[in-house]
């Protein structure tokens, strides 16, 4: 743990501490709108980190991550809705279900050698399958959605994740920071090296005795579990769930935006990506609204354009470049 900290150059440590301190005290100065933007940033940084483990480290292209977020959210929400079981307990059930799905997808994919685009389609197939299934089930609310009651008098029950922006702000911050810490720790572990080896060249990794199947299975389990936690967070933040949103491939793509833009296979990539994309998207909406234009799809077009530009010109993402710019490259 300690060498994770010392591995960061001194200037980086200062920047990190200042930013963290600023984020900790920020709610005192921010209005509701800016809080909501930051909450979204934290969410995307966290689930982006989850996807980063899978793709950036273990090299497995999953495009169905909405499945895990949706399952986590639905399971916890249903437990709360029907049995009054709070999300702090419900999250375990949500994670268990999502991890079980991850295990099935991983087992099928890795055991039968389904790789690359084929693996991506396998993950999409599962997410779409689940979306349609949820659309056709009545106890989940079907296509009409599942709504969690927002009761004014219960906004202080943090133990039930019923609360205002402040609760979700600090919870989101904790998730984003915790996710980054976990990833940093994993990346420096034996498992982390095995992931990188599998990502770079699976056959060569096998010939060095790396148990590729096991390493990839652990990656999908961790990634699915983290994403499910993010899903619970989002479900209780928005208080509503629709299959057409929760399991949509669009939701999966949202999850991959931040790590791709920020930089795959880096700890700070997903965080940087989330901090760039979400505010820019919001600013764009505000700007177009100011000119009296209100076209649905504007933000998405902007995201699409950003994706294309970044992947064409800077396929390693923004972070490696930003790191050099800030002089944070460790001296070699």
């Amino acid at each position: 743990m300690k060498d994770m900290w010392t591995a960061i150059p001194a200037r980086g440590r200062v920047i990190l501490l200042v930013l963290l301190a600023a984020l900790l005290v920020a709610p005192a100065a921010l209005d509701r709108y800016f809080m909501s933007v930051l909450i979204l940033i934290f969410y995307f940084a966290f689930v982006g980190q989850a996807w980063n483990i899978m793709m950036g480290y273990a090299g497995q292209l999953s495009l169905g991550h909405a499945l895990y977020a949706g399952l986590g959210g639905y399971v916890a929400a249903l437990l709360w809705f029907y049995f009054g079981i709070g999300p702090w307990i419900g999250v375990f059930a949500g994670v268990a279900v999502a991890a079980a799905f991850g295990a099935v997808i991983g087992w099928l994919g890795f055991r039968f050698g389904i790789e690359g685009v084929y693996f991506a389609l396998l993950t999409i197939a599962f997410a779409e399958f689940t979306r349609i299934a949820f659309d056709n089930m009545s106890f989940t609310g079907g296509p009409g959605g599942l709504f969690l009651l927002y009761e004014e008098q219960r906004t202080h029950e943090w133990w039930n994740l019923r609360g205002g922006p402040l609760l979700f702000y600090y919870l989101g911050l904790a998730l984003a920071a915790g996710g980054a810490l976990l990833t940093a720790w994993l990346a420096r572990s034996r498992l982390g090296y095995q992931w990188l080896a599998v990502r770079e060249d699976q056959e060569a990794a096998l010939s060095l005795g790396v148990g590729a199947f096991r390493a990839k299975m652990i990656a999908v389990l961790i990634s699915a579990s983290m994403t499910a936690i993010g899903g619970v967070f989002l479900a209780f933040y928005y208080n509503s769930l629709f299959p057409a949103q929760a399991f949509d491939i669009g939701r999966s793509i949202e999850i991959i935006l931040a790590p791709v833009i920020g930089g795959l296979g880096t700890i700070f990539g997903p965080i940087v990506g989330a901090f760039i994309l979400t505010p820019l998207g919001e600013a764009l909406i505000a700007l177009t609204a100011k000119f009296g234009v209100d076209l649905p799809g504007t933000k998405a077009v902007f995201y699409g354009l950003t994706l294309m530009i970044i992947i064409t010109l800077r396929p390693d993402g923004v972070w490696p470049w930003l790191k050099r710019l800030l002089g944070l490259e460790p001296k070699s």
């Binding site: 034996r190 090296y193 095995q194 990188l196 080896a197 770079e200 060249d201 056959e203 060569a204 990794a205 060095l208 005795g209 790396v210 296979g265």
Partner: peptide, 20 residues
Amino acid sequence: RPFPALSVEDNVIVGALLHR
């Protein structure tokens, strides 16, 4: 077939981790 994006040392660490 080295692991191209990894450092020389990290390449060898992958092997060394087999029994460590």
